[in-house]
Design a protein around this nucleic acid. Structure first.
Lengths: 277, 277
DNA sequence: ATGCCTTACGTTATACGTAATTATT
DNA sequence: AATAATTACGTATAACGTAAGGCAT
């Protein structure tokens, strides 16, 4: 049966001109390539090469075959791509995340890519996310620090920065930026289930928080109230232009988190898929 | 790299429903097929099968992949076919034959198939034809008896029957058939280079022959002369409707020869190509 | 009990790389 | 000399079949 690998090697020879160079490009030995090309000829039952003692040249049939081979390999690639696309689309991905903003960010990217990909998100602490990744409960996880384990791919994904969101009438509205310390005197609206951001909130012992669990209700609450709340660069992307409020960046380094995407090496395809969104 | 063989096996599974049956059809063992399908899944990075303890079923992605695989294998087949066609057409075939009628017959068939195949014919005795075949001087030979040697394909190809060709005015013209013995008294026009037919001619010691070597001249001679000559079912196919002459079949068994097509097993492709003309 | 899939294991065959050979520039 | 293709040879990988196990009908 025809080996696509041999066609690839034939093409390499056509491109490089000699078996030696082709073998170098293909990272195999020349003798191996020689044999494979002999085998290909045998398999096709056709004379692809004109052999002088020291030179190997494509016959007319060889040239023609190279052209067809390129086409067939292209067909093979589209085959692979279609299978992958179908599989991804047919599969609900399971993602473990450490902050709600990650889900918003990803959904946002999916929408922009017009992807129909369905992803189920779980919000957990990092340790449990890594466990879930190893147990293959998740195809990928997004955490606020890299995952350094064997067989796990991990790289930085995106950054999220906290902003203070206040009505235009608020005394802070004109500030270029503020510090967390400035929030001490405030009473703020706050969602629950903030993942890694919770630590930061807990450190603000002087600030009063009115916590709303239901997220839709929270959104309504904000537009109806003049109380300050938090927003991030990601929430701004989503709910742009509800002009009533001003977003003021918070300077402190704790207010900016870098998120890292991680997946098992065996799920490299999904990893790259998420990266490229 | 993707193995087309695995795709073929996947399709066999889809067609047969179980690995066991598919393995039987494919003439491999079930465990081998199991592994290959696991390997295919690994290679594609996709879940093709839903595995119960005792049952293997295609997932939706699996079904989809089968469809694409059929297409890709079809592409692979057209690739092979095109390569073969091109190669055949680009190559001048060398044929060894034992009678001139063989060339006419084959050229006739090529013409009917609208083939551009170029074939060079050599007229020799059988022994030298077989030698030439083994030495690969010929891609195929056509002899009046089968070639029984290892690694040589050989089967009957077509039959050629001698006719006596006479003008309508000739006393024999009304006969349904005649015997070689009836030719004893005749003076006939004859070509040279008759291959295996020469023996039969030589046995007609009573008949006088006027031999013409140049074949075009011979054809002119015939239409200009009222002398009888030989024709065969094959020459009749070629020069039909020069209504001046009548062809009377010769009954004797020696007047009918069966020709056999032979080629090296490695040239099976050409062998079948010639057979299917 | 029979059919089916998977894993384990030993063997075989295939594929590869190194080294040697021959020829060309 | 240097480059290039092929052949020879030993090794390592991988593919296969047999055997065995587990599970369902």
């Amino acid at each position: 049966m025809l080996h696509l690998q041999h066609l690839e090697q034939l093409i390499a020879f056509a491109d490089q001109g000699t078996l030696s160079k082709a073998a170098e490009v293909l990272l195999i030995s020349q003798p191996s390539l020689t044999r494979n090309m002999q085998q290909l000829e045998e398999e096709l039952g056709v004379v692809l090469f004109e052999r002088s003692k020291n030179k190997l040249q494509l016959t007319e049939t060889g040239e023609y075959t190279v052209g067809l081979a390129r086409q067939l390999l292209a067909d093979s690639d589209t085959f692979l791509e279609r299978v992958h696309r179908f599989s991804l689309q047919a599969t609900t991905l399971f993602a473990g995340i450490s902050a709600p903003g990650v889900e918003w960010e990803i959904q946002n990217r999916l929408a922009e890519a017009e992807s129909e990909q369905i992803i189920h998100f779980d919000l957990k602490e990092k340790e449990r996310l890594v466990q879930g990744l190893l147990a293959e409960d998740y195809q990928f996880i997004v955490t606020d620090s890299p995952v350094q384990e064997p067989n796990i791919l991990s790289s930085s994904y995106f950054r999220e920065q906290l902003y203070l969101s206040v009505p235009e009438s608020h005394p802070f509205a004109s500030k270029e930026s503020i510090q967390l310390a400035d929030l001490a005197s405030l009473t703020m609206l706050l969602r629950s289930d903030l993942g890694i951001w919770q630590d930061l909130i807990d450190s603000l012992t002087e600030t009063k928080f009115i916590v709303q669990k239901d997220w839709e209700a929270f959104t309504e609450l904000i537009s109806a109230s003049t109380l300050p709340s938090f927003s991030t660069n990601i929430t701004q992307m989503i709910s742009e232009g509800n002009g009533q409020r001003v977003d003021i960046p918070i300077d402190d380094p704790e207010a900016t988190k870098t998120f890292y995407l991680s997946a098992l090496e065996k799920n490299e395809r999904i990893y790259k898929q998420m990266q490229s969104l």
